[in-house]
Amino acid sequence: MADLVILLIFMVAAGIVAVEIKDLLASAIALGAVGFAVAIGFIRLAAPDLAIVQIVIEVLSVVFFVAVILKTTHVDSAAGRAYKGADIFTFVVFGVFAFVFIFFSVKLLLSFAPMDRALGPVANHYLTQGLAETGAVNRVTAVVLDYRALDTLGEATVLFTAVIGALSVLRLEGRKK
């Protein structure tokens, strides 16, 4: 698990760079670094399908960010501003929240899903009966396209709703001219 820890520390470091750097273009590139580290982590976590999808999505998302930044500005004018009293209050509240959040999340996650438990009955059913029931060698495909096909229909609905939303927001500007 040590390699995973190193990868995660790299992800957190790149995430902090993405959030704190003044140049928005560099920020988008740092976000891309986090995304590709996530893809490598998925390969390490025995999830090749997720790694493939993550790479495709990450390329698209960085292209979106760069396109928007090139059309507008790449300087974060709000960065490096002096902190006021309200900001310091926000930081203190956030620090307390971070501690409580991590403490209780880890406690709960470990109580209902310990790291080395055996697979549950549902996962075992997918693994042993999946080929006979769906004909898919890849069990992830079997779940996405057969056992939970309605979820996939919902996913497509959400995706098209997002596309329609983005297009309608961007179209208003074209019509005004």
Binding site: L50, V53, A123, V143, E155
Partner: peptide, 13 residues
């Protein structure tokens, strides 16, 4: 395979 399938959905969304 189940969390992997659901994360696949979540990445695209």
């Amino acid at each position: 395979p189940l969390p992997q399938a659901l994360v696949l959905t979540s990445i695209v969304i």
